[in-house]
């Protein structure tokens, strides 16, 4: 089985967000960048499936700046066979990103294309299905349980208050949710081996953006709250405030 994983380099989830002078992006100074956490489930799934099958190839494809080479190397250190960097000056909008990824993936002969259900930076939740549409492939999103039996994929995805069981054939694009697996940490041996694995760099340019970012701001501060009291004796006053002041119950 030939498996591709799409990977995005994103700011660490604990990083403090500082707005850059342009007013539409974050200031990357001092921010640690990491592989998108949801993409790590995709990496783990690809490696585990290849290992279980005992044959095949895993390829990680990342659209990003030159710095994404480091992110690709971390996937190679986990056990992915080779990497492709679609090198671009800045991240385009999701449709343009999907078009560039689909162009690269179209000729690869992949049985399975995996990626996170969303990137934790722009939280758009759409590159997976957009890639699938462009490639004319089946797609199941936000998968937390995946079974592949012969050519049939059976996946479970959480829908509000229930679980949807979805089936499709291969080839397919599957986007991964938390719960699918536990991503491995790269071992020292893997880190050493990753340095020798192939990493192709292909410069790309994006088409016109579907939207214009007008502004990026910090969320408004919440008005200062108050400590109602200490211990269970404060409960009646809390209930009174929720009822009469906040009108929340």
């Amino acid at each position: 089985m030939k498996i591709a994983v799409c990977l995005k380099r994103v700011p660490d989830t604990t990083a403090k967000v500082v707005i850059a002078d342009d007013g539409v992006s974050i200031d990357p100074t001092g921010v640690k960048f990491v592989p998108n956490p949801y993409d790590e489930y995709a990496i783990e799934e690809a490696i585990a499936r290849k290992t279980a099958a005992g044959e095949g190839e895993t390829v990680v494809v990342s659209l990003g700046t030159d710095a994404a080479q480091e992110t690709i190397r971390s996937a190679l250190a986990m056990g992915i066979d080779r990497g492709v960097l679609l090198q671009i000056a800045e991240h385009p909008d999701p449709a343009a990103a999907a078009a560039l990824l689909a162009d690269e993936l179209a000729t690869g002969g992949y049985d399975l294309i995996l990626m996170g259900k969303m990137a934790v930076d722009d939280s758009q939740h759409q590159v997976g299905p957009q890639v699938a549409e462009r490639l004319g492939m089946a797609c199941i999103t936000a998968v937390a349980h995946l079974k592949i039996d012969g050519g049939t994929v059976t996946a479970e995805r959480e829908i509000e208050g229930a679980v949807e069981v979805v089936r499709c054939g291969l080839p397919a694009v599957i986007t991964c949710d938390k719960g699918l697996n536990t991503p491995r940490l790269p071992a020292l041996k893997g880190i050493m081996a990753a340095k020798k694995k192939p990493l192709d760099i292909k410069p790309v340019t994006a088409g016109e953006s579907a939207f214009e970012v007008l502004s990026l701001t910090l969320p408004p501060d919440r008005p200062p709250g108050r400590i109602v009291g200490e211990g269970p004796d404060a409960v009646p006053e809390l209930v009174r405030l929720l009822r009469t002041e906040a009108k929340a119950i």
Binding site: P94, Q124, Q130, A132, C139, I159
Partner: peptide, 24 residues
Amino acid sequence: AATATGKDLAPRVAARLETSCATE
């Protein structure tokens, strides 16, 4: 809606229209 279904369906429609959707 930005629900499990809406977040699956909206990008598919956006792709047919060759555009991006705005989520959440």
